[in-house]
């Protein structure tokens, strides 16, 4: 019950979906369509797990008054205020408190958090990007050519940059992509045949 039935479900659904790519018969395409619509519904409900988990973690921090618990209060406040405004006002209207919180709080905070990386990468370039040996120097020289070739001020290097992107860069990433593809296929087969079970957790 605990293992056999899930493994049978994985095998049957996996084989049917894999076959549907090769068998054009309408019946198997109908089954595929049916499964896809079911998966959508399971997925929608499963996503809520994350929300439950986030709430639980923060509530525990507040209750135990762990260091920094006040920030958990702020997270929960953000969650509640978004939920309240989202259900009181129409999410489709372009201007209401729900949209306001999104456009003028959530968006600038997240956009700015990622823009901090510009400062860190500049600092990393200064401190860590060293020509310690031939391979490190290769990375360094390529990076400099690409950085210059990408911007108007280094337009003269643009053809060389394009060649680097389309030949050695492409070749290197093609090898990596082939590895990812073969690994992904092997993993999918292991899951369908019940060899890989880690995603199911333990007893």
């Amino acid at each position: 019950m605990k293992w056999e039935i899930p493994l049978v479900i994985v095998f049957v659904t996996g084989v049917i979906l894999a076959l549907s790519d090769f068998v054009p018969h309408q019946s198997i395409q109908d089954v595929r369509e049916f499964f896809m619509s079911w998966l959508q519904i399971i997925g929608v409900l499963a996503v809520g797990l994350g929300l439950v988990s986030l709430t639980q973690v923060n509530l525990v921090k507040v209750r135990r008054k762990t260091p920094g618990w006040i920030y958990s209060v702020i997270t929960l406040f953000g969650l509640v205020i978004m939920l309240v405004t989202g259900f009181v006002w129409d999410y489709r209207e372009p201007s209401n408190p729900f949209q306001f919180l999104f456009q003028y709080a959530l968006l600038p905070i997240y956009a700015t958090m990622f823009s901090l990386l510009a400062f860190y990468i500049a600092s990393a370039a200064f401190r860590a990007f060293k020509a310690r040996n031939a391979l490190a120097t290769t990375i360094l020289v390529t990076a400099v050519i690409v950085m210059l070739g990408q911007v108007p001020v280094g337009a003269k290097l643009a053809p060389l940059k394009s060649w680097i992107m389309e030949v050695p860069n492409m070749a290197g990433f093609r090898a990596i992509l082939l590895g990812i593809g073969l690994g992904g296929v092997a993993m999918a087969l292991k899951i369908v045949f019940g060899i890989e079970r880690a995603y199911m957790g333990r007893d």
Binding site: F126, F129, V151
Partner: peptide
Amino acid sequence: GMDVQSIEHLLIIAFIVVGNVGF
């Protein structure tokens, strides 16, 4: 934005050069 990008890239390349001189 590409004007800024040009200047920033030159600055970061300068950081790399100066960082290596220091190294």
